[in-house]
């Protein structure tokens, strides 16, 4: 097996995730796309860990999984709050930062 096959697949996942983050309007779907990005990173970590024959890659992947769990928890809470305040989770309507 080539190392690159894993890395390219991860890169593809990453880009799909980026597309989702940029183009999706629904807050929950944006969070899902973020998960795609994080998983792409994890695949990279584990693949390099296997390549260098060390467990460190896995250790960091596990840390990323834990952080992803925290991120989803807080992210969904924020989405919920937006929904409660605006009765919608359309992110293109959230533009209070307009200059």
């Amino acid at each position: 097996m080539y190392l690159n096959q894993f890395l390219l697949l991860a890169a593809f996942l990453f880009c799909v995730g980026v597309y989702g983050v940029l183009a999706r309007k629904n807050g929950v779907l944006v969070l899902m796309s973020v998960e795609l990005i994080l998983n792409a990173v994890n695949v990279n970590l584990v693949a390099f860990g296997a390549f260098h024959n060390t467990v460190v890659g896995q250790v960091f992947a596990l840390f990323v999984i834990a952080i992803a769990a925290a991120e989803v928890g807080v992210g969904l809470a924020i989405v919920l709050l937006i929904y409660r305040n605006k009765q919608s989770i359309d992110l293109s309507e959230v533009d209070l930062m307009k200059g």
Binding site: V28, N42, G57, Q58, I65, A68, A69, L80
Partner: peptide, 28 residues
Amino acid sequence: AAEFTAVVQVLVYIGAIVVLFLFGIMLT
């Protein structure tokens, strides 16, 4: 050959995070 991480992936991601997403969909 990263078995443990695979198991954690299934448990945490599919077991917990996706369920969380479904709840998020439901609640919003």
